[in-house]
Design a protein around this nucleic acid. Structure first.
Length: 529
RNA sequence: GCGCCCGUAGCUCAAUUGGACAGAGCGCUUGGCUUCGAACCAAGAGGUUGCAGGUCCGAGUCCUGCCGGGCGCACCA
């Protein structure tokens, strides 16, 4: 990865110049190409702590860097007020094209994760009905984030917590619906599920639990088959927490460590001593544990399984739960990091006509049926997770050039068309791409395309660090633009055999990266459209 | 009232976490197909980044105070 090498060089140069370990090295992609391919403000940052001007520092660094690695750069410039601007050499770019062709789908696979274990919990929707459009955000971002983290070298376990505790109020209420004694959860889908399946449980609790299993299997099927979102571990609250008595063990542990107390007939947990504003009930007056207690038990289970990092992806309505679980992780002394992502609301614009007899609620299934999985994934991923967002249904339904998904897929289809027209197999293009051939790639559009290709690993690295999954559709769009511009400027198949070979190699490399990017997002790389 | 998130082009959203001239898509105006796919390319119009202060060489981004919106604030999950 170029950027990583630049960071390393800056650190080494700083050490040689005698101002090491002063500032973090941060590398930018300058917007103006006059400012190079990569830039850093390191000299400016360093100038804050030592008695030298930013430019003097930059000069010093530049000479050391060029000494250390003369072949990587075409040049390094210093700009006001003290930026270092790096221009990557063609030699290096050609080498990277070769690497892409060699590594194929493994290009962009990083070691930054060092095989560390991460648990990602997402969706965890109540088994009392169908998934709604808000759950889509959790499902897709969790899926894509997992893909990215795996690509970055982490070992990821994707989990889903099923709130099916037999004695919970929602399950009992569901039982009433199942037994015809209540209507809380009576929807079209649940009525049809009840017609197809027999509920044998006599008690409300048992009947509710049975119905929950049916709904849950339905949702699981929908997630896996229709949304292509797979989970490694489905954790049933009833089976994994209650039946295995983890709930009581958790409670005993809390009591033993003096982390709970009685008040007004209930048992409270001392979350306020661990950063929360107040304490919360873990056992009701009735003796029933609350959901908080079982979620703490579930988190203890995750912590015990030895993850270096535990990520929870929740909906905006769970915001109040964050400080409780954070406090619990401190009580439990979790050594790893706990990141809780709270996703903001999703609404639809132009969906008024879609809703089918379910009040105003549009299910995720209806949405995906309406716009297709590729478009749905794209529209969800496009937006930063902490922005309240609105999906434009009319635009999403446009099966035309207006829809941004097709822009990217079209680039891939174009590539496939060129490759098949070349009359040669991809393997041939690879075999014929020697160093001499790649050196023929000198057009600005060709070089710009290569520079875009080698950003994939960096995009993976950044996203694995900050979880901003909207970076992926943005990168895909940028890459497609670079390709379309290359296509405009450079005829791939021509009488010039050597040039054709070189350009075919570049086209093939682009196909690999584009497909890689799309598959991280779970979007299909179409060959024809 | 308190907490979290947000306010950026007509609309939906970005902006590499403090960097260089705030960018895309849609919509609008205009030009380009007898050559590898025009679902494409190129050009243009459109902005006091909600308002007011502050810190900094440098602020959409950080701090303070307002204004506006969403979501939370259970012995529900």
């Amino acid at each position: 990865m170029v950027r990583q090498e630049i960071v390393k060089l800056i650190k080494e140069a700083a050490k040689k110049a005698g101002f090491s370990a002063l500032a973090a090295v941060h590398i930018d992609y300058p917007e103006d190409e006059k400012h190079g391919d990569y830039a850093t403000n390191f000299a400016l940052q360093t100038a804050k702590t030592i008695r030298l001007t930013p430019k003097a520092i930059a000069n010093n660094l530049r000479s050391h860097i060029l000494n250390l690695e003369p072949a990587l750069f075409e040049k390094i410039e210093i700009a006001d007020p003290g930026f270092l601007n790096f221009f990557i050499s063609k030699q290096y770019l050609y080498k990277q094209v070769g690497e892409i062709l060699r590594q194929k789908e493994f290009f962009g696979k990083l070691k930054t994760g060092q095989g560390k274990k991460i648990s990602i919990e997402s969706v965890s929707a109540n088994p009392t009905g169908q998934l709604h459009i808000g759950n889509g955000r959790n499902a897709f971002s969790g899926d894509v984030l997992s893909n990215v983290l795996e690509k970055a070298g982490y070992k990821v376990v994707r989990e889903y917590f099923v709130n099916d505790a037999k004695n919970s109020k929602q399950i009992i209420e569901l039982g009433k619906t199942a037994l015809g004694k209540g209507e809380t959860y009576k929807t079209v889908r649940i009525v049809s599920l009840l017609e197809k399946n027999k509920i044998t449980g006599q008690t409300e609790s048992e009947a509710g639990w049975q119905l929950a299993q049916i709904i849950q299997n339905n949702n699981k099927d929908f997630l896996e088959k229709k949304l292509k979102v797979k989970f490694d571990k489905w954790v049933s609250e009833e089976e994994a927490i209650y039946q295995q008595n983890k709930i009581n063990k958790m409670l005993d542990w809390l009591k033993k460590n003096n982390l709970v107390y009685e008040k007004e007939g209930a048992l409270w947990i001392k979350t306020s001593q661990f950063g929360d504003d107040k304490d919360w009930v873990v056992v009701r007056e009735t003796g029933e544990p609350t959901y908080l207690l079982s979620d703490i038990a579930y988190h203890k289970d995750k912590f015990d399984r030895g993850f270096d990092k535990v990520i929870d992806i929740w909906g905006a309505d769970h915001q109040a739960h964050v400080s409780k679980i954070k406090a619990a992780s401190k009580m439990l002394g979790f050594k790893g990091s706990l990141d809780i992502l709270v996703l903001q609301l999703v609404t639809l614009r132009g969906g008024e006509k879609m809703s089918k007899r379910l009040g105003n609620v549009i299910t995720l299934e209806e949405l995906v049926d309406e716009i297709g999985l590729d478009v749905a994934r794209w529209f969800y991923l496009q937006k930063s997770l902490n922005t309240h967002t609105e999906i434009d249904l009319d635009l999403a339904k446009e099966q035309s050039e207006k829809n941004p998904v097709y822009y990217v897929q079209y680039a891939h289809a174009r590539i496939c068309s060129i490759l098949s027209k070349s009359g040669k197999s991809p393997a041939f293009a690879k075999a014929s791409a020697g160093k001499e051939n790649l050196k023929l790639l000198n057009q600005p559009a060709e070089l710009a395309l290569i520079k875009q290709l080698i950003r994939l690993p960096e995009t993976v690295e950044d996203t694995a660090r900050d979880y901003q999954v909207q970076r992926l559709p943005q990168y895909a769009t940028d890459l497609a633009t670079s390709f379309h511009q290359f296509y405009r400027d450079c005829q791939v198949l021509s009488d010039d055999k050597n040039l054709s070979k070189a350009r075919l190699a570049l086209v093939l490399a682009t196909k690999i990266i584009l497909k890689n990017t799309l598959s991280l997002m779970g979007i299909s790389a179409t060959e024809k459209m």
